[in-house]
Computed example of a mutant assay.
Amino acid sequence: MFDGGILPLIFIIAVAVIVLSVFLSFVPVMLWVSALASGVHVSMVTLIAMRLRRVVPKRIVDPLIKARKAGLEITTNQLESHYLAGGNVNRVVDALIAAQRADIPLGFERAAAIDLAGRDVLEAVQMSVNPKVIETPVVAAVAMDGIEVKAKAKVTVRANIDRLVGGAGEETIIARVGEGIVTTIGSSERHKDVLENPDRISQTVLNKGLDAGTAFEILSIDIADVDVGKNIGAQLQTDQAEADKRIAQAKAEERRAMAVALEQEMVARVQEMRAKVVEAEAQVPLAMAEALREGKMGVMDYYNLQNLIADTAMRKSFGASAGDPGTDPNAAK
């Protein structure tokens, strides 16, 4: 009977332990006690409903306790809806507390919207209290006298809470400041004017309202460094002169090629004419032989012709020896 009485008791105790373990794992009793001790009333039914909605109760209750201790009126429904939307509840509550301490008007809906937009709302609040310095890369521009000037600026910005959702980021600020630097240097008549008054760049850029449409408010623009670069004007003139030189050389080469072609054409024509003369001279003996055969020319006529050719060659040789530049002793050949 003893064994029959102890076994049901052990079974009942085991079942009770299992049920209690399941209940404690499903119902966050310790979290409910912690909230109750902190003066935040969260009912057990609400915690169980969070479990059923697949919401981690600790990620809702802990930020709620923090907010209530800071004096913020936030409900569990607001935190739970933001959690279900994929937001960082703890980050939003920390940002609200920081904004309240810094006397920055920021409501829960605005903070939740900024967090869901992908921006760090706590960092934005901190940047509103402690402005951030953005350093631009080296920006090169050319003044009107052709001298290149390189400048680097430091932009002090403060986060604009109202424009964090949909406002442009730091890249836009850097691009706009660089554009302003290029415009200011390019409109200067001399590069020395920029070197003498670098604050002229910051004043001109600051007056352009470059923070419009961005998530920041520009407080100041300071020129950190100004250097002189290359003489772009002289380099452009040198490049232009080199290009003109190459064009002139190309045209001269074209004229030379045309002259060479013309000369070769003339030489070819002269050679052709000489070939025709040689061919004609080769026909003379044949014609004389034909004339002798046919009786159109006698032997004495042939000898007289040869004597005439010899006399002509002798006279030309005499004229050449006497210094007559117009005679050529080789013309009879």
Rank of each mutant, 00 (worst) to 15 (best):
F2M: 12
L9T: 11
I12M: 11
I13S: 12
V17W: 10
L20H: 09
S21G: 15
V22M: 10
V29N: 07
V29G: 04
W32I: 12
S34D: 13
S34W: 09
S34H: 10
A37V: 13
S43Y: 00
M44C: 08
V45N: 07
I48F: 10
M50V: 08
L52R: 11
L52C: 02
R53V: 07
V55R: 04
V55D: 05
P57D: 06
K58P: 00
D62L: 15
L64N: 09
R68H: 15
G71A: 04
L72N: 09
E73D: 14
E73R: 10
I74M: 11
Q78F: 03
Y83T: 04
L84C: 05
L84N: 02
D94N: 13
D94K: 12
L96P: 06
A98F: 05
E109G: 01
A112V: 09
I114N: 02
D115M: 04
D115W: 07
E123Q: 11
V139F: 01
A141M: 03
A143N: 05
G146T: 08
I147N: 06
K152L: 03
K154C: 02
R158Q: 15
G169L: 07
E171W: 07
T172L: 11
I173C: 02
A175Y: 11
V177E: 03
G178F: 04
I181W: 06
G186D: 01
S187I: 01
E189A: 15
R190Q: 10
H191R: 07
H191I: 03
L210Q: 05
A215I: 05
A215H: 01
I223Q: 06
D225A: 09
D227F: 08
Q235L: 12
T238R: 14
Q240K: 13
Q240S: 12
E242S: 12
E242A: 15
A243G: 06
R246S: 01
I247G: 02
I247C: 02
Q249G: 02
E254F: 10
L262E: 15
L262N: 12
E265S: 13
V267C: 00
V270C: 00
V277S: 05
V277H: 06
E279M: 04
V284S: 00
P285E: 10
P285K: 10
L286C: 04
R293D: 13
V299G: 05
N304L: 12
N307V: 14
L308P: 01
M314V: 14
F318K: 07
A322T: 07
T327M: 13
N330D: 12
A331S: 08
